[in-house]
Every structure is written in C-alpha cells, then in structure tokens.
C-alpha cells in the first residue's frame, strides 16, 4: 500500500517527462504545419512576394478549374486502383506459392522482399537504365525477337503503364510478406477438416484460406492505398509528370506548380485537397486501429 502511494505521487512528473519531447515535436512539426497549411490555402501567399491577402476560396476554385490538376487527380486515382489491385492479387499468388513449398520458404521470402527494401529513387534509376531507348537491355531484347520498341518514358501511350509496372515490381513484395504472415496464421486443423470432407485445393482455398485472411487482405489493400496515393518519387525522377501530363500525380502537380514556383497559397490548397482525399480513403483503417 505504502509503495503504491509512493509511485502514484511521482506519476505525473514521470508521465510529463516521458511524453513532453514527443508532444513538443508533434506540436511544432505537425499541429502547427497543419493549421498553417489550412490558413495559407485561403491566401494568395507567394513566398517571394511575401504579402498574402485573404482570398477565401479562390485557390480552390482555381485548382478545380485547372485541367492539369483534374488530370492529376484522375491519374492518381487510376494509378492507385490499378497498383493496389495488382499488388494484392500478385502478392497473394506469391504467398500461396511460397507457402506451398516443402523447403526453401525462408530463402524465397527474403529474396522476394528485396525490391521493396530499395530506395524508390534507386528503383526508378534501375528501370530507367533497363528501359533506355538507346542503351537499354529491354529494347534490345524486344528488337531481337522482332517486337516494336518504345521510348518508354516519353511516349504518352506507355509512360503511365511503365511507371505502374515499376511501382508494382517494387511494392508487390510488401503485399506478399503481409499475406504470407496471414497464411501462416491459418490453423492447420481447418485444412485437415476440409480434407476429410473431401475438399479439393480450390474448395479449401475458397472455404478455409480466404475467410481466414479477409482481414489481412483488407489491411494490405488499405496500407498500399495510403502509400500509393502519395506517389511522387518515381514520377518526379522518371517523367516529372509528362509526357502531356499523362503521369502527373497530385503530389507531382503540387510540387511543379506550387512548391517550385513558391506559390505557397496555391500549393497549400492542393495539399488540403490531397489530405482530404487521404482521410476519406483511410477512414476505415483509422477507425479500426483506434478501436483496437
């Protein structure tokens, strides 16, 4: 009893000491920026001119009237849907494959993981070299077998798809790893029961595996959506949003037309739109995580 009281006394100071640094960092680095991004978004703030009169919703109106911005939103949504669906699907196939192996599961798991661990910049550069129209191995192979070659990043027909493939190559391993861990959690007894009932491979996948990993699939899709939606590195390095705006994403648009030009009011409005999108997309995830 005495001891408990003693510890209880110092508790407040201990809690304060343990949380104050984080609190301070969060206030300066997140609370303050979010508030001021909102404030800036209602002003005509250019960093060089300095003056920033209040212009209400003008930035937002300008943004939504802008064809390039609308295209960037469209690209981002399309890219995210295609990338996430492919990554989860391919990740699941890989996980099922590796799980079905009798040996070398661990080795294969770590080899498959490697692309995800590379910096996005490095991944972009590797593919740029392989797909180089003049010196790349890809076009050389295509030529050898008589197929048409492309200037992959400059051709409006191929640029979007090429970046999509590169992103899928890098991030499928993450989906694989997560789903592989989920598969390990499916109890063997359920498979045995299904086998006794005479279920084949596909039946036991449908009735045993799938119901057990629905949560994992949803989480995986969620995490990949949040991450893919902010796509920037690969686009900025490989195409800068071109050709003809076909690969521009929201972040890339904001970088080109707001941050580089130091039009911080306009860029802030763009950031707010982006943030609202992300909040809507991740609402389910946040809700679930807070509850647990």
């Amino acid at each position: 009893m005495k001891e408990k009281a003693m510890i209880g006394k110092g508790n407040g100071r201990f809690i304060f000491g343990m949380t104050a640094p984080t609190m301070l960092i969060l206030l300066i680095m997140t609370v303050y920026p979010v508030i001021f991004t909102i404030v800036y978004s209602f002003t005509d703030y250019n960093y060089l001119k300095g003056i920033h009169p209040f212009i209400a919703l003008e930035n937002y109106v300008k943004l939504f009237e802008n064809v390039y911005f609308r295209q960037a939103v469209f690209n981002t949504v399309l890219f995210t849907v295609l990338a996430v669906v492919s990554e989860v699907f391919l990740g699941l196939l890989l996980a099922l494959y590796v799980r079905s192996l009798k040996k070398r599961q661990k080795l294969l798991r770590v080899l498959i993981l490697l692309p995800y661990l590379l910096p996005a910049v490095t991944v972009a550069l590797i593919w740029r070299m392989m797909l180089s129209p003049n010196y790349g191995i890809a076009n050389q192979l295509l030529q050898t077998i008589g197929l048409p070659v492309f200037n992959w990043f400059r051709d409006p027909n191929t640029a979007f798809g090429t970046i999509l493939v590169i992103d899928i190559w890098q991030n499928t391993p993450f989906a694989f790893l997560l789903l592989y861990a989920c598969l390990q959690g499916v109890p063997d007894s359920q498979y045995e029961a299904a086998a006794i009932d005479g279920a084949g491979y596909f039946q036991s996948f449908w009735h045993v595996t799938l119901p057990n990993i629905t949560g994992g699939l949803a989480l995986c899709a969620m995490l990949r959506t949040i991450d893919t939606f902010r796509l920037f590195e690969k686009v900025n390095i490989l195409t800068g949003g071109g050709p003809a705006n076909t690969t521009s994403t929201i972040t890339q648009y904001m970088y080109t037309y707001g941050i580089k030009t130091l039009d911080f009011g306009f860029a802030s409005a763009c950031a707010i739109v982006m943030t609202v999108f992300v909040l809507i997309l991740s609402a389910v995830y946040i809700k679930r995580a807070v509850q647990s």
Binding site: T19, M23, L26, I28, M29, T30, V31, Y32, P33, V34, I35, F36, T37, Y40, Y47, I226, F229, R230, T251, M254, I259, F264, A267, S268, C270, A271, I272, M274, T275, V278, L279, S282, Y285, I286, A289, V290
Partner: peptide, 24 residues
C-alpha cells in the same frame, strides 16, 4: 487525443506538413 493524432500523422502525406515547415 495524442494516440489518435499520432495515428493520423502516420497516415497523412508529407505535403500536409511540408510548406509551413519550409517557411519555419
């Protein structure tokens, strides 16, 4: 509040913070 905010920060994109940080 802090727990929820931390989760939110983890989800929000860098662009939500970067402009005021630049000026700061």
């Amino acid at each position: 509040t802090m727990t929820k905010w931390i989760l939110l920060v983890r989800v929000l994109p860098p662009v939500a913070f970067v402009i005021p940080l630049y000026t700061l």
